[in-house]
Write a protein that binds this DNA or RNA. Structure first.
Lengths: 185, 185
DNA sequence: ACACGATTTTGATATAAGTCAAAAAATGCC
DNA sequence: GGCATTTTTTGACTTATATCAAAATCGTGT
């Protein structure tokens, strides 16, 4: 079954017509490790679900990559900036493993919101949930030391540590790889 | 005119019945400098607009107050956690000047979403806009040094600097007051 | 099992920011 | 206008993290 619809159903009811409409606009991609899904400046997709694989989002700061988040299977993701502002994303999204992904484009999503206003309930709840996740991240960056942020990560996404190399995790935590290596010891 | 309705109208259309319903559920408060609007553990209000005055949101970390944001006139605010999860907020909201505020409670808002589903369009857009603001804050905390964060603040909310003391701003930036004082020089 | 490249760790040193204490300046109040 | 309180600045020292360089370890393909 279409995993995007599955995710939507967690937030509210979809009638048959709406379900069909989402189905018709969903695109499936298979991507190899290292490939990009979204590059800075594009605004390809808005909501997507990873069926299999692992992704990271990063942006460039002084020519250096900084990871902003990691995504695992069956989470719903959005490139929020494109969804709302129609501006291109400043984020890049790259696959860290061979991945399967189901996505709906900004334009299609906006069309669905227009034709099926009841989808706004689901959209609202998703956006609110994203807010909470973002707030927690802000709290973490605002108040925690590098050591504490590492401990939070272990607590919240323990399996990431086995799938992602230290450099990526350090950049997510906002510290250098050397410092992270020392923290672990 | 009710400033909450004014704000809502920036995001979408409200028919007469809905407008009246919002009107009936809006509460007006006048609060003196130093008073609290929301204390950790409560979940009083969800959306509110400051008609006049200045507020700060803060939380406690190891017994120390950390400011998470400041709010000025005619911005719309939400205590997101209560809105979505019905869990109490971990934030405290305090007035830094004598203030006038218009608010709608979590329960009333949820009722409105149920009775007037078209309000979900507005709620979605507000939540999405909040997401963008939060993402920018994350970027700032993640990638910028104390000096850069201070410069960003000057650029984005220059008038705050005249209304709020250094200690509060330092805590917002995630640095000590002494460091901020040295940066300014 | 070996060799190659990628990843992680270690070491020495530099820099940014924190801490604590006190002085200086600004603000409010009678 | 002068006193008390709050806010801001300064100084000396400490701690956390960054930087650069090199060594050690791991993983994969042959």
């Amino acid at each position: 079954m279409n995993p995007l619809i599955e995710q939507f159903k967690k937030y509210g009811y979809l009638n048959e017509a709406l379900e069909k409409a989402v189905e018709n606009r969903t695109r499936y991609f298979f991507k190899k490790k290292g490939e990009h899904f979204l590059r800075e400046g594009q605004h390809l997709s808005s909501y997507f679900v990873l069926r299999k694989g692992l992704i990271r989002a990063y942006f460039l700061k002084n020519g250096r990559e900084m990871n902003s988040w990691f995504g695992e299977e069956n989470q719903i993701f959005g490139s929020i900036l494109p969804v709302y502002t129609e501006k291109p994303s400043f984020e890049n999204i790259q696959f860290l493993e061979d991945s399967e992904i189901y996505a709906i484009s900004v334009d299609d999503l906006n069309e669905l919101y227009r034709i099926y206003p009841e989808l706004n309930l689901i959209g609202r709840k998703i956006a609110e949930e994203v807010c909470i996740i973002l707030e927690e991240r802000i709290m973490s960056l605002h108040t925690e030391s590098a050591v504490e942020r590492y401990q939070s990560l272990i607590r919240l996404q323990p399996n990431l540590l086995n799938r992602i190399n230290l450099g990526h995790i350090a950049s997510y935590l906002g510290i250098t790889q050397e410092t992270l290596s020392r923290i672990r010891r």
